[in-house]
Design a protein around this nucleic acid. Sequence first.
DNA 1: GTCATCATGTAAGCCGTTACATGATTGC
DNA 2: GCAATCATGTAACGGCTTACATGATGAC
Lengths: 228, 228
Amino acid sequence: MLELAILGLLEDQELHGYEIRKRLRDELGLFANISFGSLYPALSRLERAGAVEAVEESGTDGGRAVPMTGSLSGERAAFRARRANPGRGRRGRKVYRITEEGRRQFAALLGSEPGAGIEDARSFGLRLAFARYLPPQARLRLLERRRAHLAQRLIEAQAAAGHGSRLDSYARSLVEHTTESTERDISWLDRLIDAERGRVAVTTIAGAGERAEEYHEMKGRQMEGEAR
Amino acid sequence: MLELAILGLLEDQELHGYEIRKRLRDELGLFANISFGSLYPALSRLERAGAVEAVEESGTDGGRAVPMTGSLSGERAAFRARRANPGRGRRGRKVYRITEEGRRQFAALLGSEPGAGIEDARSFGLRLAFARYLPPQARLRLLERRRAHLAQRLIEAQAAAGHGSRLDSYARSLVEHTTESTERDISWLDRLIDAERGRVAVTTIAGAGERAEEYHEMKGRQMEGEAR
DNA sequence: GTCATCATGTAAGCCGTTACATGATTGC
DNA sequence: GCAATCATGTAACGGCTTACATGATGAC
C-alpha cells in the first residue's frame, strides 16, 4: 500500500523521502503523516527490488526536477556541494526516480483487486488518486466495486437498526452520522461513475480498448506547463 | 483498542466472542468484521489480566442473559446439555462477564488521551460509542479534541491547495470530497458539543462534579425495559 | 445424515507505529 | 554560534489480517 503510494508519486516526478511524506500528507490527505520508520524502509525495499533508483539531483537529467525550497543562497550552496554521489545532491538528500520495472510493478499494484479482503477507504482513496494511470474500464470497476461495498454496508446497518439495537444517544448519533456520510459517499461515487461511463463510451467508439499503459498523460503534462 | 471495544460491550451485558464480533460489525459499524484471529486472543489476554471471566450461561445469575437465538427446541437442548463447565453453556460457547478490575481498566482506557498520537477516526468513534460511561467533562474534552484535530487537517489541506498542487481531476475530486466530509463532521461535532455544554452546565449547578464511575446508567436501563 | 452456520482457537505474517540516533542546512 | 527544520535511518514492537484446523448445533 505504501509502496503503491510511493511509486504513484514517483511516476509524476523525482522526489526524496521527506518530500514524499509531505505530498502524501498535504496533497492527498492520505496517510496523515506517514512515519519515517515506514517510509525509508519502504524506499530501501523498492530500491533493492529495482523499482526505483537514486539519481543525481536536478540539472539536465531529462526528468522533472526536485522542487526547490525557495531559498536562493541555499540552492547555490547545494549546487556547490554537489558531488558524484549517486542520489545525493545537496549532501544527505537522496532523490529517487522510478524505473521501467517500477512502472510495471506500479501498474500491477494499482490494477490488482484487493482479493475480497480489506477494500478499505484508504486503499480506495489511493487508487482513485492515481486513477489516471488506470485503463478506463479498470477505473470504472474500481468505482463500482467501492460503490457496491458501501451500499452493502448501508444495507447491513439498516438491518441491524431494524431489529432491536437499543443504543444510547451517543452511539445512535454516531451511527446516524456514519450512515449519512456513507450515503453522501455513494452519491459522490454515482457522479464519478456517470462521468466515467461517458468517457468509456467515447473511448470504446474511438476503437481504443483496454491496452495502453498510461492514460491522459498528455493532458497531465499540458496542465503543468513545465519544460520537457 | 479492540480490548476497549470488548470491555465496552461487556459493560452492558454478558457475551460470547462470536456475538461480540457481530455487535461490533452490525451495531456500531466500527471494526467492519473484526477477525477471529484478533478477537479470541484479545479475550484470552483480558481473561488472564483478570478483566473478564467466563460465566455460566443465562439462568438466574443476576446479569443480563446472553441473547437467545430464537430456536425453542435449540434452547431446550442447550439447557439439557449444560454442565458445570465454567463459561461453557451450550457446549462450545464461552460466555464472558466483565469483572470489577475490568471496569477499572475500561474506565482507564476510555479516559486516556491517545498521547497526541494517532487520534484516528476509529479510536474516536469507539470512545464516542461508549461516551455514556465517561464523566461529562471528559466527554466534552473528547469532542473538542476531535473537533480541533479535524479543523487542523482542514487548515492544512487548504494551505496545500493554495500554493501549487496541480492535481488531476480524480485526485482533485477525492480531495474536495474529503474536505466536504470533514466540514460536515465538524458541524456534527459542533452540534454534539453544544448539546454537551448544556448538560455539563446543568450537572455543575446540581453540584455533581467529575467523580462517579457511571453516568446515565439509570436512563439506559429504563430504555431497555428488561427484567432485572 | 448431511450441510450451513455457529463457535473457538493457533500460526505466520504484513503493515504500520513509536522511540531512538544522527547529521546537514539555513535563518537569525 | 545556535536553534529550527530538513533529512535519513534503525530497532522494537503493536495490532490486525489471512490461512489453517477443529468441532458442535440446528434445519431439512
